[in-house]
Simulated scan of single mutants.
Amino acid sequence: MIQQSIVKIVAQTSLGHVQGSGVIIGDGEYVITNAHVIDRAVGTIEVSLHPESGPRLLTDGQVVFKSDDIDLALLKIEDSLGKPIEISRTLPNLGDSLILGGFPGIGGETLTATRGTVAGFQFDGATIKFDGQLGSGSSGGAAVNQQGKMVGIATRSSGEASAGSLGILLSAPVVSAALATELLENFRSEAMRIDSQYPLSILGIPAVATVLDGWDTSVTIGYFDMRAPNTTTAFLTEDYLVVGIFSMDRTPNETPKDILDRLIAESEGAYEIVPNSGIRPPIGFSNCVLVHNDERFEMSRFDARGTVVGAWWVSVAGLYSRFCISQTTQTTIIGFVESPSSEVSNDNRRWLAPPTIVLIK
């Protein structure tokens, strides 16, 4: 799988060329890498895919986003090369086995894959310590879990003898948070979309969102929400309203009801089902539940591993939250509405008229 998603990057500089690695994401027309790989590029950035057999595939890349603060860059490539990688929404567990793919300088023209484990975390999970080999040229390559999902990208070696020269990975949640907005807006620009509609397929969600003027959005890979003015998780106001959607891997034999039951159980008593709510699932969804938050419900990146919400989550006490499930063969889609009013949270117009999120089958 990683052979189809990890590319070699060569950037020409005034002092010669810099070699690194990158990962195909989005709809297949974008590549992520480290900012330091392309930082001094003065000409064309060469991006190439190297299959196990046959000739390499070559195209040019253009920088559309770069952050030196977190050492991350997003390239738009002229021609599609391979298959976009799936990005994990959650952090791995300590001791998990990972495979790191990249193009270290000593690895020749073919992809090099090394095994290692998660040796620890830094900065509240922003970076992951990796005990596998990470050579010069590996920067920007993907570390994937046993499901083939990217959990981080190689950034640097610790360089500390006492630490055994651990590799440092920028974690997938941080990559997602930093790039998702840029990826979505660039995708909208390419499609000449200047209105309020947001095609979420670039984030891995088969849906289109319509956002009202004045509303804020929160975006990561696999997650999108829109928030009414004066909506904050610091305290509850009568104007509070969030409409959102996120995706998770589908577990074999787990039904929509099983997922909703698990979501409620994982809240550890914060969510209580509202009886006799008379919910009719919106178009494209099969099962829904309306719950009331009796107390503030919050999960950290670490707490959310393996849960339905899957990532950092905050729900304010006093809210009514409606969750609805849709499933494909491989993915579960969860739509939600949060409001201090049970009537608003349970109103199908929140799913059928702006602000709204409509599934695309």
Rank of each mutant, 00 (worst) to 15 (best):
I9F: 10
Q12W: 00
H17T: 12
S21G: 05
A35N: 04
T44H: 00
E46N: 00
P51A: 00
P51W: 00
R56A: 09
D60S: 02
V63A: 13
V64M: 10
F65A: 10
A73G: 07
T110I: 00
T114Q: 03
V118N: 09
Q122P: 03
I128C: 11
A154G: 07
T155S: 08
S162F: 13
G164Y: 14
G164F: 12
L170S: 07
A172H: 11
A172W: 07
P173G: 10
V175N: 10
E185C: 01
M192Q: 01
P199H: 05
G204Y: 05
S218Q: 14
V219F: 03
V219R: 09
I221T: 12
G222K: 14
M226N: 13
T233D: 15
F235W: 12
V243S: 10
I245P: 09
M248S: 15
E254R: 08
K257Y: 14
S267F: 11
E268M: 15
P275T: 13
S286P: 04
M299S: 08
S300P: 04
R301H: 14
D303L: 07
V314F: 06
L319R: 04
F323Y: 12
I334A: 15
F336A: 08
N346F: 05
R350H: 08
A353Y: 03
I357V: 08
